[in-house]
Structure formats: C-alpha cells, structure tokens
Design a protein around this nucleic acid. Structure first.
Lengths: 221, 221
DNA sequence: CGGTCATCTGAACACCCGTTTAGACTGGTG
DNA sequence: CACCAGTCTAAACGGGTGTTCAGATGACCG
C-alpha cells in the first residue's frame, strides 16, 4: 500500500482483521472478541479504538469503499474497463471483494455511496463507449448502468451459488480461472439473449401487457 | 388480534409469521420471541413446534422453496416464461420473494436446492426457446442459465440499491411498475451490450489478457 | 364425574453479545 | 527516584438470545 501515514497501527491491524473475518466467515462472525483474538489483543481494545462495534463496521465500510474506489480509478486510468468487478479481482484484494459481497445485502451508508459512485462512473465511460461505437446505445443510459451494476455486484453476492454450479469462486479466482463465469457473460453481452424473431413476436404481445389483467394464470385470492 | 378462528394450524401461523418477519425486517429480526409475539403465543411454543430455531428456519426455507416451485410450474404450464422472478412477482407472494431475497446470500440447503432446480428448469425451456429460434444459442447452455439465474436472483438481493437508484421495489412492484428495471433488462436481452466493432477489437486484445499483469505487493501483514 | 393426553405458558437457565471500568504495564520526564 | 499520561488487560455488568421445564389449561373419553 503506497498511501498514507501510519498503517501498522493497532487500529489498522484491527480493521484489517475485521475485514478478513467478514470476508471469510460473514458478518455474524464479526464480534469484538473474534477480531480481538485474531489480532492478539483484548476485546476492550477494539472498543477503545473504534468507540463501538458500529464504529468498527463503519470504519471497515469506509476503508473498503475507499480502497475499491482507488483500485478502480487506477484500472480506469490504465484502460477502459467495463467490468468493474473484473478489474478488482485482478489485483489480489480478495478480502476486500469478500467483504463487499458480504455487506452488499445490508444497508450501509458507506456501501450505498460506493455503489452510487460506481454507477456514476459506469454511466460516464459507457457513454464514451457508445460514442466510440463500441457499445450499443440505450434508451436510458443511467438505468442500463444501474442494471449492469446490480447484475455484476449481485453475482458477487450470489457467489456461493455460482461456486456450487460453475465451480468458480468470484472472490478468489483471477484471469482465466474465471472463464466458466466470464464466457457466458461475454456471450450475453455480445449477442444478447433474444433473437430478432423473439423481438417481433413480443412486440405484438406488448399491447396485451398494457392491460393489467392479461395474466395467463388464474389469480389465487 | 383476531380470535381463535383461523383455519391454519398454529404451526402454519408461526411459519408464516416468521417468513413475514424475515421479509420485512431481515434474518436478524427473526427470534423466538418476535415470531411468538407476532403470533400471540409464548416463545416456548415455537420451539415446541419446530424443535429449535434452526428447525423453524429450515421449515421456512422448505416452505418458501416449495411455494415458489409451485407458482413457477403453474406459470410454466400457462406459457413459456424466461423471467422466473417476473412470473413470481405477478402473483401476490411478496413475503415469499422478500424472504428469498433475504436468505439467498446465506447458505441454506433448501434454498440451494431450489436454485439448482430453477437452473435445471431454465436450461430445459431455454433449450426449447433456442430450438424455436426465439433465443440465441449458447456455447454452454447450462452456464448461460446459471449466469442468468445469478443475475435475476442477484438483482433481488440488491433490491435495496435498485430501489434507491431506480425507484422500484422488486419484491413489491407488479406489472408496469417494474418498467424502470425491466425496460433496460429487455434492451440488454435484445441488443446485448457490445457492438460488432467491440467484438472485433476485443478478439485481438484477448492475447494480452493471457499474460498476468504487474503484481502488486501488499504490506502491513 | 375423573383420568389422560397434548398443548401452551411463564419463569427460569446458560450462553454470548457489546460495553464499562479499575487496575497493571509501559515509556518518557522532572 | 517519583510522577505522569497513555495503552492495554481482565473481569465484570446488563441485555438479548435459544432452550428447558414444571405446571396451568383444556379438550377428549371412558
């Protein structure tokens, strides 16, 4: 880590231990005593440094968000990269990604801010991609960016299932190891899912969809 | 509180109350006492009926999985539907979807089995779609089905962020209310994301991706 | 009527949690 | 040496948790 003043402090070691615990064992495993034991100090110390466990959580959220921001902008400077998460996985920041995957389904202000910024940035360089003729234009660029971000980050949260079904650990694998997941993704990004025939057929069906009770199943209640 | 007259057994009422609590307030809010209070009984009763809180959790998992299976097959019988979650949202099973969104990021055997089955079924009728010329063929049909399932269910887990960014609650909205989310999804499914120009360019760039990039040391450990 | 059985209750119990606090230890300063 | 300020520890405290258990309740039945 190039930046900053005093990393190495007990505070930093506690924070890093907390991130690793969350990444490895989930948020429920993060207690004052587990992080204290992992760092080799007493439970009181973690409260001394962060005021409370909520303070620790917030410090971790903000640190992970800042670190991911940093790595992402570095990757953006090197070259356009549409897959933010893919860029993150290439540096060995596995605990950061694992932590993010764990807290993405809870509501943390710092994480929400990070997601908002990721979407904002994605809108920016996807518009560049559209202008360069590399990406299809969208009716609502921002909405598309939100959906893509939800899919990519959502896949991170679904890591357990993807690992079971595809044999790939999104938080640990790098490069070609990711192929079983990345290959279908690229295929979908390239060709889409629907054929022209489907589009024509659904175009006629859309008028029925406008009327709210064009449901095919019978309503239960 | 409504009185004695309720056709459901106490066991069923406890299970439904637990599902609603998880859907509304998250898994952390599910305690023996909260579900007991919501049902108007004592905490001991819930343990009496389910053996333990883990038993309650498992009963809820299996019930929700079975119910979603049932609704999905009903929708499948009526007509081909690619968007499983979309089909589920159309019947008023909001607590079921909310519960699913909450437990999808944990590891429950029953939920894992459900996800596996959803993927299996998706593979089946996506192959039909390909044969009918409605869907693009995939190099690995199963892998594509897994990715699509991860995206759709992952979006459910990311509901909080989608609601914040798009103003849509995926677990509650129905029909045209979902447009801000469904519209970009349909666009991506139709046109994809990459243009032909992008595909040609990235074909040449693939060789560079094979060589691992500069590895960065990580200090402070 | 009394007996039986299952159900449900309310009060315990042991455990783990975050947090507090008194005291021990450290190193620097006169 | 004494003094001081800061840091860390160990042991508590209060609260919430899952779970247990003796007894109240009530329905069913001979």
């Amino acid at each position: 880590m190039c930046s900053v003043i005093d990393d190495r402090t007990l505070r930093a070691r506690l924070r890093d231990a907390a991130i690793e615990i969350v990444a490895a064992r989930g948020v429920d495993a993060l207690t004052a005593r587990t992080v204290a034991q992992a760092t080799g100090v007493s439970a009181g110390s973690v409260i001394n440094h962060f005021g409370s466990m909520a303070g620790l959580r917030q410090a971790c959220d903000e640190y992970v968000a800042a670190e991911i921001r940093r790595e992402k902008h570095k990757a953006m400077a090197a070259g356009t990269d549409l897959d933010v998460i893919g860029a993150l996985r290439e540096v060995q920041v596995a605990p950061l990604v694992g932590y993010l995957a764990a807290v993405l389904s809870e509501d943390s202000p710092a994480v929400a801010r990070l997601v908002d910024e990721l979407v904002d940035d994605a809108v920016g360089y996807m518009e560049q991609g559209v202008a360069a003729g590399l990406l299809e234009p969208a009716a609502d660029e921002r909405a598309r960016a939100v959906v893509l971000m939800a899919w990519n980050l959502g896949a991170l949260v679904m890591n357990r299932h993807i690992h079971r079904l595809l044999g790939v650990d999104l938080t640990a694998a790098t490069g070609t190891e990711l192929a079983p997941y990345v290959a279908p993704v690229m295929e979908l990004y390239s060709k889409g899912l629907f054929t022209e025939a489907f589009r024509q057929r659904s175009a006629t069906a859309f008028e029925h969809a406008a009327t709210p009770d064009a449901r095919r199943g019978r309503e239960g209640s």
